[in-house]
C-alpha cells in the first residue's frame, strides 16, 4: 500500500519554524506508522529525528501525534488510518511540550511532574520478615496502573494542560494512584494532601481525553476520580471543588425517591 507520510520537521539549528515534509512510501499491508517512519529514516532521509526502541508498545519511546491524536507509532496500523492509495498520514511530535527536533519532544516537564508526586514506595513500620502479604486482587488493580509505560500520550493531549501548565496532568496522577492504592505505602495522608492542592486531582476537567488516547489501558482519568473519592473519604475536603461535590451528592441523595 502506498501512503504519503507528512511529517513535522523542526531543526533548532536552522532559522525556520516547524514545517512539513512528505515522504511517499510503499508499505506492507500490516505496517505500523513506526514502520513507515523507520523506512523513511533508514532509506530516504537520515536527518529525521525520532525516538523508538521496542516496537511492541512497552518502552514508551514512540509516542507521537498521528492525524491529530497522540498515539504510539508502533501500535497504530497504517491500514486503520488509510482508506485509499496515496492517502496522507500526518505525524507530529506530542503536544503540550516543546520540540527538540522533528518528532523528538522535550519531556523535561513531563518527568518533572512525575517526580513531583514522589513516585516511590513509602513503606511504614518495621519490614516484614519476608514479603508483605497483600491480596492478589489489589496487585491486579495496581498492575493496571503499572501498565503505564510513561509514553506521554495522555499528557500530550490533556485539555487542561493546554491552558494551564501547572496542572500535574494525567500520567503523574495515575502514578500517584498506584501508591495511594498500594497497602504497602503508608504515605496516603501526605500524598492526598498534596494531590488536592492546586494543579492536582480537582483540576481535571473530566474530558476523558487521556482515557481515549492511552493505548495501555491505564485509564488515567478513572484513577483521578478514584483519588478524588479516596481524598474525600479520608477527610481531605478543603478544596472548593471537593465541597461542591459533597454538596451536590448530598443534594441528589436527599432528592432521590430511592432509599439511598
Amino acid at each position: 500500500m502506498r501512503i504519503n507520510l507528512k511529517v513535522s520537521r523542526y531543526d533548532p539549528q536552522s532559522d525556520g519554524d516547524a514545517h512539513y515534509q512528505t515522504y511517499s512510501l510503499d508499505l506492507p499491508h500490516d505496517a505500523t506508522v513506526l514502520d513507515a517512519l523507520i523506512q523513511a529514516h533508514g532509506y530516504i532521509d537520515g536527518s529525521l529525528a525520532l525516538r523508538y526502541s521496542c516496537r511492541s508498545a512497552v518502552c514508551g519511546s514512540c509516542a507521537m501525534r498521528i492525524d491529530g491524536q497522540a498515539r504510539l507509532g508502533c501500535k497504530t496500523k497504517v491500514v486503520d488510518l488509510v482508506h485509499q492509495e496515496g492517502q496522507e498520514v500526518l505525524v507530529e511530535p506530542i503536544g503540550n511540550m516543546p520540540t527538540i527536533k522533528d518528532l523528538v519532544a522535550d519531556m523535561e516537564s513531563f518527568w518533572g511532574k512525575v517526580r513531583q508526586v514522589q513516585p516511590w514506595l513509602h513503606p511504614a513500620g518495621p519490614e516484614p520478615e519476608r514479603e508483605y502479604l497483600v491480596p492478589h486482587a489489589t496487585m491486579l488493580d495496581l498492575a493496571g496502573a503499572m501498565n503505564c509505560i510513561m509514553c506521554g500520550a495522555c499528557v500530550s493531549d490533556c485539555t487542561v494542560l493546554e491552558v494551564d501548565p501547572d496542572f500535574v496532568a494525567p500520567a503523574a496522577l495515575a502514578k500517584a494512584y498506584r501508591f495511594v492504592g498500594d497497602p504497602r505505602d503508608q504515605a496516603d495522608g501526605d500524598r492526598l494532601r498534596a494531590l488536592t492542592e492546586y494543579g492536582g486531582v480537582w483540576d481535571c476537567t473530566r474530558c476523558n481525553m487521556c482515557v481515549e488516547v492511552c493505548q495501555k489501558g491505564v485509564a488515567p482519568m478513572d484513577r483521578i476520580l478514584a483519588l478524588r473519592r479516596k481524598a474525600i473519604e479520608d477527610g481531605f475536603q478543603d478544596h472548593i471543588a471537593a465541597r461542591h461535590v459533597i454538596e451536590f451528592e448530598e443534594q441528589q441523595r436527599k432528592a432521590s425517591w430511592m432509599g439511598v
Binding site: R206, L225, R228, R229, I232, H244, V245, I246, F248, E249, Q252
Partner: peptide, 8 residues
Amino acid sequence: GMIQSKDQ
C-alpha cells in the same frame, strides 16, 4: 461525574 467523584 460529580456524584461519581465521591460515590461511584
